[in-house]
């Protein structure tokens, strides 16, 4: 539905975005990740038509920026970073104004505002002045602003930055709820957030795209080998290491400090992608040791992120 081709943006001689190409399907939640100053906001601003690309094209269905910017803006809801709103207006007045500018029929406005107030939790603040709102509440008003006409595409620039954990959870829940039907693109530098909400992750660094994959695939890509952790009750000493080495000579097994008292913890590292859990279990079963836990540790996205954005 959205096709971005070789998108480039220069600020004078500084290259903020360097040849990004992307295709975003309908109903996808895409997370745009990158360190500060990587070009996330610039990319999103070009997608909304607010910034003109230096070169490259953006197509949405059969519409093109900048030729059909007005039509594209109708299909798109956008929440800029830190939700800049008019400070001197009441929330209700502001949303009514947005509804009118977005061309909602006069008789539909109260109904739509009620829906949005339910969806974004605005009921208590509708008649407060915007400058009296906390950052999280402003962000919610911004979300309601973006979703006013139920647009097909939602673009959210760091929707959770600066919020407390409860507010973050709320905003994420809203994104997931509306993301079932809409195409959502949002930027963040919080990895767990992207992991929890996105279908697909694009990582950019210094204006270049360095990764574009599903969350699952990205994790696997980073898994150069797997680590299993095994805990046994009692002080079992070196004996399990010897026993498990009979499974595969290449296994790297070490005893590490136990997490729980009364148990012994071992780390089993393998260079292959084979799942050794079953083998380990069967081996332990032959003995009289009692297993406390056996888990496969997957590498976190943090490692991938750090690896891909080195030198930023």
């Amino acid at each position: 539905m959205i096709q971005v081709n070789n998108l480039t943006k220069y600020y004078d001689s500084f290259c903020a975005v360097d040849g990004i190409s992307l295709e975003i399907r309908q109903g996808e939640i895409l997370g745009l990740l990158g360190p500060n100053g990587a070009g996330k906001t610039t990319t999103l601003r070009m997608l909304t038509g607010f910034f003109k690309p230096t070169s490259g094209t953006i197509k949405i269905d059969d519409l093109e920026i900048p030729k059909d910017t007005l039509e594209i803006k109708k299909r798109m809801g956008y929440l800029p970073e830190s939700a800049p709103l008019y400070h001197n207006m009441l929330v209700f007045d502001y949303l009514t104004y947005v509804a009118k500018v977005r061309g909602l029929a006069k008789e539909d406005i109260p109904g739509r505002l009620q829906e949005l107030s339910g969806l974004c939790g605005l009921a208590d603040i509708m008649h407060k002045s915007i400058d009296a709102l906390s950052k999280g509440l402003k962000q919610r008003v911004g979300l309601a602003h973006a979703m006013m006409t139920d647009p097909e595409i939602l673009i959210l620039d760091e929707p959770t930055s600066g919020l407390d954990p409860n507010q973050i959870a709320e905003i994420r829940a809203i994104i997931r709820r509306i993301g079932k039907k809409k195409t959502i693109i949002f930027s963040t530098h919080i990895l767990s957030e992207a992991e929890a909400t996105c279908d697909r992750i694009v990582i950019i660094n210094q204006g270049k795209m360095v990764a574009d994959d599903t969350t699952e695939n990205l994790k696997h890509r980073a898994e150069k080998g797997t680590t299993f952790s095994l805990a046994l009750y009692g002080e079992t000493g070196k004996a399990p290491i010897k026993l498990l080495n009979t499974l595969d000579a290449d296994l790297d097994i070490r005893q590490v400090a136990a997490r729980e008292t009364g148990t012994s913890l071992y780390e089993v590292k393998t260079g292959s992608s084979r799942d050794f859990r079953k083998d380990i279990y069967l081996k332990i079963k032959e003995t009289d040791w009692v297993m406390a836990e056996l888990t496969r540790e997957s590498q976190s996205l943090e490692n991938i992120f750090q690896e891909l954005t080195k030198g930023a």
């Binding site: 601003r45 038509g49 607010f50 803006k73």
Partner: peptide, 14 residues
């Protein structure tokens, strides 16, 4: 200065 220009420009207005 406030940044609301961005919000305004991304509404469907010329």
């Amino acid at each position: 200065n406030v940044g609301s220009y961005e919000t305004l420009m991304t509404l469907p207005v010329s």
